[in-house]
Design a protein around this nucleic acid. Structure first.
Length: 283
DNA sequence: AAGCACACCTGCTAGC
DNA sequence: TGCTAGCAGGTGTGCT
């Protein structure tokens, strides 16, 4: 569900409503939510700490923790929502949603809740923040298009020596961090490139179109507070939907007329994922 | 080493 | 109406 624009919207929500609060309590439900470390270790690391910021790398939320007893060791709570996770900020009296996996009580009486039906999502406390504020646990991630900007030369060089489909390249978090299935399709439509095109087949002018499309689509989606599909699985921190789904040109529009030329949108499978495109507008 | 299939789960929908 | 197969925004592993 959540890709870069959705996670960025949550990050902004945390910045506005949660940064500066202190953690009073932590409750975990189920076995799978904390799996990189002993859950008791996460509870101990969070309890009593100050939420001192809200950052994001790709689809990971990184919440730096301050106010430890003598340790300013640069710890951070890291959250990944995977397919079905939600992060909600509610009053303590709000009814507990089904599939609530974690409840973090804050010193103003509010709660941060992690809800995740499919249990793919996870929480962990990372130590050893690098100078950039990025946890070493996320070192394998490529540059984030919003945080780091897009290095067009690097992207072109990577594309040139990969024989995989263009869409597979965009979904590779080591290449660029944050793009998922929805925005890969929307970016490729905007760039006029077919998802199954070999990454190494692009002409220089096409590299330029791709880089521009990445920036434009992600910026527009962040401005619209992300995409909420018909199942309403993505909601922002306050429970409100995004609106970028109203601007989707191809994603989940199989058979509907292309907004550019009227040709029905085609759906194919690329590397095991569904891919939507216009046969006429994308080459 | 890149690329692919599959596993991890629950819930929803389309089709019978 | 009720069952079942298939599919879903992501990523980590292990095999070729």
């Amino acid at each position: 569900m959540p890709e870069l624009p959705e996670v960025e919207t949550l990050r902004r929500g945390l910045e506005a409503a949660v940064v500066g609060r202190r953690v009073c309590s932590v409750a975990l439900f189920g076995e799978r939510t904390v799996r990189r470390q002993d859950p008791a270790q996460l509870v101990a690391a969070l309890s009593g700490r100050l939420v001192s910021g809200a950052a994001r790398w790709g689809k990971y939320l990184v919440v730096p923790l301050g106010g430890g007893a003598g340790d300013e060791g640069g710890e951070a709570l890291v959250v990944h929502l995977r397919m079905s996770g939600q992060l909600l900020h509610v009053g303590a009296g709000a009814p507990l949603a089904h599939h609530t996996r974690a409840v973090i009580g804050l010193d103003d009486g509010s709660e941060l809740r992690f809800v995740d039906p499919r249990t793919f999502g996870e929480l962990f406390v990372a130590d050893a923040l690098e100078a950039s504020g990025r946890p070493s646990a996320l070192a394998a991630l490529g540059p984030d298009p919003l945080v780091d900007g897009i290095d067009a030369d690097r992207l072109a060089a990577l594309a040139k020596r990969r024989r995989c489909a263009l869409k597979t390249l965009l979904l590779d978090q080591k290449v660029l961090a944050g793009i998922g299935n929805i925005y890969a399709d929307e970016i490729l439509f905007r760039a006029g490139l077919r998802p199954a095109r070999a990454a190494c087949s692009l002409a220089p002018v096409e590299h330029g179109r791709l880089v521009a499309a990445i920036g434009e689509v992600l910026a527009a989606a962040v401005a619209a507070r992300g995409s909420t599909l018909s199942d309403a699985r993505y909601l922002d921190l306050g429970g409100a939907p995004g609106s970028y789904q109203e601007h989707h040109a191809v994603y989940a529009r199989t058979g509907a007329p292309c907004l550019g030329c009227g040709t029905p949108v085609t759906r194919v499978r690329v590397a095991g994922r569904s891919a939507h495109f216009c046969r006429s507008c994308q080459a």
